[in-house]
Write a protein that binds this DNA or RNA. Sequence first.
DNA 1: TTGAAAGCGTTACCAG
DNA 2: CTGGTAACGCTTTCAA
Lengths: 339, 339
Amino acid sequence: MKATIYDVAREAGVSIAAVSQVMNGKGKISEERRGEIIKIMERLNYQPSVIASALTGKKTYTLGLLVPDISNPFFAEIARAVEDQGHHMGYSLVICSSDNKDERVERYLNLLQQKSVDAMIIGTGMDNKDMLTPLMERAIPIAMIAREMPDIDVHTVVVDDFVGGALSATHLLDLGHRRMAILAEHSKVSSSRERVRGFKSKLEEAGAQLPENSVRNCHYVVADGKREALELLDQSNPDRPTALFCCNDLLAIGALQAAKQLGLRVPEDLSVIGFDNTILASVTDPPLTTVAQPIEPMGKMVVDLLIQELKKESKAKQRVVMRPELIVRQSTAAPTECD
Amino acid sequence: MKATIYDVAREAGVSIAAVSQVMNGKGKISEERRGEIIKIMERLNYQPSVIASALTGKKTYTLGLLVPDISNPFFAEIARAVEDQGHHMGYSLVICSSDNKDERVERYLNLLQQKSVDAMIIGTGMDNKDMLTPLMERAIPIAMIAREMPDIDVHTVVVDDFVGGALSATHLLDLGHRRMAILAEHSKVSSSRERVRGFKSKLEEAGAQLPENSVRNCHYVVADGKREALELLDQSNPDRPTALFCCNDLLAIGALQAAKQLGLRVPEDLSVIGFDNTILASVTDPPLTTVAQPIEPMGKMVVDLLIQELKKESKAKQRVVMRPELIVRQSTAAPTECD
DNA sequence: TTGAAAGCGTTACCAG
DNA sequence: CTGGTAACGCTTTCAA
């Protein structure tokens, strides 16, 4: 069996208290004893039980990460950034994919609580904001990443989605597009809503108008994006858009596939713009113009915020907004007029 | 504060043992009391502490997943499959990215032990097989996924990598290629070694020969693949290969990028074949011919194997080998002769 | 049926 | 400095 603190104490001929102290560097122990004890710990290959120490009120050194889908490259990249910084600070990560379903969110939230994670990072949307109140009552630090929950006092790390949408609109307008449409995520996703808002606002500024029914809400998967794009690009529609703003790279890929299926060339016949700048954007055909989020800094930041709160070094919840950046690749170009 | 079993007991006017029993459905309790207690638990929003119950010898209901890099789409997809099945069985997942570095593997292995995960899923290679022995001594169930560790008695779920390599070779040979090269992963990765073996064996069967120095070991990132491909495709080389077999999709993407940079058309001037059939393969330019692994069944299988062992329902370690499938897309074609 | 009590492995307080 | 010892929240005998 695994060696316990008792084994070490017995072997060293001291009390468990002494052993505990050398582990935590607390209390006073003679250098001599300390050295001996350490030697014994090594010999026995003693590994203190996180479980036991957590029970006495200490931390579990575990963070929960709730995202819609870890197999979505954007969230996988977020997870990696969070994992790295967490690991760096001595924390490990349990990941949960919610599929944007409230019931799954709730289950996972409960589970993570029962497992006493030290803090929670939430990158998934949810309709019912009350789901977080139990956590807040229990004073479990919470941070949102790439997503917001207004009216709730938690840390938040986001990119300026409004600006990201605006950036895209400006790019498309500059290129000469006037008839555009949007592939948005599920309406419960705050970031997507903001992107749409930013995009529209620039359009209005420029006097351009979105045709009726041209903002499509999709679940965040490729198939949905494709289906909606297919409808939007329906040849029989005289007002067919010349450009599509997609609220994430996956949707953009769906749009690309739809275009290919319809025999539309990108970017000649249709411009497509994505969001997130995941690895996908760099490998598509053609490579995707997209709005980049600074994923790594964002991941690092949430962890820092949370750990700071855990150490009680911080008082107020912070909201940090990072700058998006338009990455122009080859899926956007001036529209070729042919009406 | 959080309600404990004591709160419930006091409120219900019973002993904590009674409460414990209704939670675990053990022992005998009158229906009457049972109902009351349940009511109280709900009223108090009581959530038993996994930590505490784990300390008394029960499980933590947590699985560790060790992969090279969670932001690599292949492993992200694996993680999702594992998470789903785990969640289904009541387990959560802590993920660890090793970057294929033994020191990181070791750190994580220790960490997961200290946190008392119930079992470990390993999808990362390691040089030093002894790292697993402490786990085995402590009887922590281990399963390898998409990777093997010979000489070690653990569950293993892999695709038949040898066959996958052979499939690729056959495809390329049928197309008429004779001069080929390979972009392999780090030599410590068993799956990659097998793929190379399978590929070579078919080549030899056909009397084709790999030129000197044409199996390149790369770390598993795109940049490496590109750099090596650049060398392999060096124009000044009269024996420049007409086809590249890449041991994963990421490497294939690197090859695609190298080809583009050199002005080589794919598949006309160069055929490229990947492995894994991640989402990446379907979106590249051109879409990638690749060998598919049944990721979801594999993820489900490891979890089942492990849980089965945890329940002591199983005796021997199993090794399950699944069938790879060649997915032909547009990155492979007959070579155009021009020597 | 029910409850008292002994752990599980640590931490932390408090006397020596 | 050092060692007892009471928690921590739950499970599990063992009596009653």
